[in-house]
Design a protein around this nucleic acid. Structure first.
Lengths: 166, 166
DNA sequence: TTATAAAATGATATAATATAACATTACTAT
DNA sequence: ATAGTAATGTTATATTATATCATTTTATAA
């Protein structure tokens, strides 16, 4: 019943995550006649560097370090790239962290929810049919028309549970 | 199956909401040997003035208008009152609005979720057993240990749906 | 191919939300 | 009454995000 899940904290070849994400971004942009400019691409790559959501100013700092080409890319530019990527569905905003993370399942029509580790901030993206139907049913019963949803579960990932014990 | 719901947008005697909330706050503070100081009480009252979540600086402004006793209560004081009320479970933080709303069911042990109108921001507090069990089951299956949750459904309340049509 | 419009980025300033740090005041309990 | 704790006052500043206008780049049509 777990339709999708990318469990950040399980071992996986993360280079593949990045390559796949970038490739998918290129295809999607081509299809929708949107331009994946160098700035947008490097912002996406920076966000995909980990499964920890990244704040906008973290991205600014990261670019300053990794580009070291004299001129710094400033906040508004990063926010514009973020907006572009959000609109295309290539990244998610994690509201409770004010941070951004790569979207693992752009093809997924269900709404996603997130398992966010309070300690290491690693964030897993999931989606179930059930969750969606409960939300829709409950809302409908009260006459409320659902548009979007923010479902963020905060707790401890397996690794940080371990380290708390030891 | 809808365990609780306070449907902000349904007609109700809101004065009663406020009176009940304040009374409950007094009792709870007494029980837990916490002090419901004048500032904390007026912040709670201000938040309860409507079923729209209120930003911290909205509260600051409100107090300036309604107290008009020379000295303004400043942001840190309001944030401290907010923290106190959050800890006691008397208010909720609505993450997607950076705002605070009175808690309708402090006795509810389930976790709450919110139906938030995109236009008028009226916010209904709900909770169902089902939602909780899905979240717990999904999380457990991945080895994630749930602590808290943010479930905010954004859409249109019945009233704003009407007004969109007309 | 160049002129032109549209899109993207640069640059500066500032809004909005939240907290740190330390001083002062008020309350509680002996 | 007084010491110790809790709450509030005050100032400064951190953090996240956006508005505005200038400049550059890209796409396209004459």
């Amino acid at each position: 019943m777990l339709t999708y899940s990318r469990l950040a904290y399980q071992a996986h070849d993360h280079q593949r995550c990045i390559i796949t994400a970038l490739e998918r971004a290129r295809v999607l942009c081509e299809e929708s006649h949107a331009r994946l400019t160098p700035i947008r691409e490097i912002v996406l790559k920076t966000i995909w560097a980990s499964h920890q959501p990244l704040g906008a100013y973290d991205i600014v700092d990261n670019l300053a370090l990794n580009l070291h080409t004299g001129k710094r890319i400033k906040a508004p530019t990063v926010y514009r790239a973020i907006e572009f990527l959000l609109n295309l569905g290539l990244i998610h905003r994690i509201t409770s962290l004010n941070a951004y993370i790569g979207r693992s399942f752009p093809e997924n029509t269900h709404n996603d929810f997130f398992l966010i580790c309070r300690i290491c901030h690693s964030t897993a993206e999931c989606s179930t049919e059930q969750m969606n139907s409960i939300i829709l049913h409950t809302a409908e019963r009260t006459g409320f028309q659902v548009e979007t949803q923010v479902v963020e579960i905060i707790g401890l990932c397996p690794k940080c549970q371990q380290e708390k014990v030891s």
